[in-house]
């Protein structure tokens, strides 16, 4: 008998062989090679030349990199902060008010509608919005001129003072549906009797929202904040199609800056250094997230 149970637990190693081989070839070796390249000067054709930490010194003093990084932090407002807050409010509103008054079907319909931008490829989002924001005949300027605000009409993506803001609007539009779907599912765990008891005790809507709803769906909030933060650090397609990081470097982000060094200016060594910097930040964030999550789980089971 003992022998039988042991065999249920063991003898799976062979099934990991294809997976581990594939990961070695596609992820680990390229990642380590990329680290190696970051210590070299390489144009991609002739053999790379070892230059030690020069690329890292350059990174620290490179104002374009820091501008890109700052832009990336600003984009967090559009991709993490606003979607999480608006998503929480809309999800609660749909779950409480719309479902109660108009039924599940109506509330699901709205959820699907808000989610729709999420299914589009990043490049298609860029194409659609570049068309809408086009300065001469785009929809936004057409509307502004039509309602007598032609002084506000603007080359939104072409002017350094508004380009990043315009990209942010596009990203909020794209991102907001994701937290709505996650939070609406999480809200099903909130016990309506608890909310009712709180109302009887005289709790206001805001108090119930803050002390009960937010408290109970903390794990999902954590997941949304982490995944959207990582997605922001990796954002590429929208920037590539909307602005190519421009005008100047007004909307550049590190992932685009790395791409530019790899494939446009052929500074492969330096590109590797930039991409490694993004990777390190993401790895640290993931470790932090897993720590918080396991602490939360421990606190819950205690």
């Amino acid at each position: 008998m003992k022998h039988k149970t042991a065999s249920v637990d063991k003898g799976y190693g062979v099934f990991l062989i294809p997976g581990i081989m594939a990961f070695l070839i596609i992820i680990i070796i390229p990642f380590l090679t990329n680290i190696g390249i970051s210590f070299t000067k390489w144009g991609g054709v002739r053999p790379p030349v070892w230059i030690g930490l020069s690329n890292y010194q350059r990174l620290i003093g490179d104002s374009v990199f820091w501008l890109s990084f700052r832009n990336n932090l600003i984009l967090l407002i559009a991709m993490t902060v606003i979607p999480t807050v608006v998503g929480l409010l809309l999800a609660t509103f749909l779950f409480d008010y719309i479902t109660n008054n108009f039924g599940q079907g109506v509330s699901s319909f709205f959820r699907a509608g808000f989610y729709l931008p999420q299914i589009l490829p990043s490049a298609v989002i860029g194409i659609v919005w570049a068309w809408i924001l086009q300065p001469d005949w785009g929809v936004v300027n057409f509307v502004l001129k039509g309602i007598g605000l032609s002084s506000l009409a603007h080359n939104w993506l072409g002017d350094p003072s508004t380009a990043l803001l315009a990209v942010m609007v596009v990203l909020v539009w794209f991102q907001v549906g994701y937290p709505i779907v996650i939070f609406m599912a999480a809200l099903q765990r909130v016990d309506p009797e608890l909310l009712e008891a709180a109302s009887i005790d005289g709790a206001s809507w805001l108090q119930k929202f803050y002390y009960i709803t937010i408290h109970l769906i903390r794990p999902e909030i954590l997941v949304v904040v982490l995944t959207t933060t990582i997605y922001t650090l990796k954002v590429f397609g929208q920037v590539y199609v909307l602005t190519r990081g421009g005008p100047g470097n007004a909307t550049s982000v590190p992932s685009y800056y790395a791409y530019k060094n790899f494939f446009e200016t052929q500074q492969v060594g330096y590109g590797s250094t930039i991409s490694l910097a993004i990777a390190v930040i993401i790895i640290l964030l993931t470790v932090l997230f897993i720590n918080i999550q396991s602490r939360q789980e421990k606190a819950e089971s205690a």
């Binding site: 596609i26 992820i27 990642f31 390249i37 650090l233 790395a258 590797s272 990777a279 993401i282 790895i283």
Partner: peptide, 14 residues
């Protein structure tokens, strides 16, 4: 982590 990794960090070797 492999899924979260930015593709740029694998791009050139790939």
């Amino acid at each position: 982590m492999a899924n979260f990794l930015p593709q740029e960090a694998l791009a050139y070797p790939l």
